[in-house]
Amino acid sequence: MPIVEARALTKVFRRPDKGPGLAGSVKHLFARRFQDKVAVDHIDLSIEAGEAVAYVGPNGAGKSTTVKLLSGILVPTEGEVRIDGLHPQRDRMTVAHRIGVLFGQRTQLWWDLPVRESLAVLRDLYGVDHATYRKRLARFDEVLELGEILPVIGRKLSLGQRMRADLAAALIHGPRVVYLDEPTIGLDLAVKDRVREFFRSIRDEGTTVMLTSHDLADIEGFCRRLVIIDEGRIIFDGDLEAVKDRFARERILHVETARPVPLETLRASLPGAQVTVEESEVRYAVRFDRFIMTAGQAVTALAGLTDLVDFRVDEPSIEDVIRRVYSGELVLDETGPRR
């Protein structure tokens, strides 16, 4: 049985439809008109225990709304959600014990208390026994280096410190499912690395993770499954590596030669690849499909023509693929594997 299941999940927000300016606002007082905005549109999603799912989409696509529906914060307009077979509104208390939520832009720490106290309040809220609590805290400390921030008052934390403390706060009760909504927003690279390492450690322990992020580096190497949402609909749901294989086949070999070589000669020796001159006349870029030619073959072919000084291969990232999906250049729906 899937641990998270959504069927025909829909959320419609009603927004006041006011005309421009003061006149519009006054008119709205007498003739109230509303506009329906469909934030999430009949989403079907099921996540198995232990899966790490990346949930991505452009701004306003409905990512956060989905997370709030899946965690029982928002009541769906239509459709239903089951967490571990439970109804998130009706069984709110039980569900709360099984899920952990982190909203990167919000904190669940007590603003006026030291982090240590905030975590202790959460420990009591969730009824975690002291031994387990100490064990978890020690483990979080290993990766997140909590020690230095435990005595700091909530409102005096820097963003990076706050996020680390909030991660601990979201996981202190050992939830089975964790929703991470923009967990690395605004963090510097060093903290991001640490936080990502932490994600991997909780995933490896069998926690189900749903990760929403604009920073696709959060996703690569962490999530196996990719779900893309746009305008409230899921436009792709499938294997992350498969997407890369299918849509990120192009490799670029950058070479620097000892002497200039005529472009025609290069092209003739590399059929099926595109060769262009880069910033200087001894630097070339070779674009090829990795299913037609390997990087090794390309290098060998070039080495037969001239002395190579240097070379490097660029792999496109999942970021490129998703960017192309957002811009409408790629339509995954028709070709991508669907679940």
């Binding site: 029982g72 208390m93 709360a96």
Partner: peptide
């Protein structure tokens, strides 16, 4: 909207 976080507490 911070009430969202109050809603996921088991109280």
């Amino acid at each position: 909207g911070d009430v969202a976080l109050d809603l996921v507490k088991p109280v």
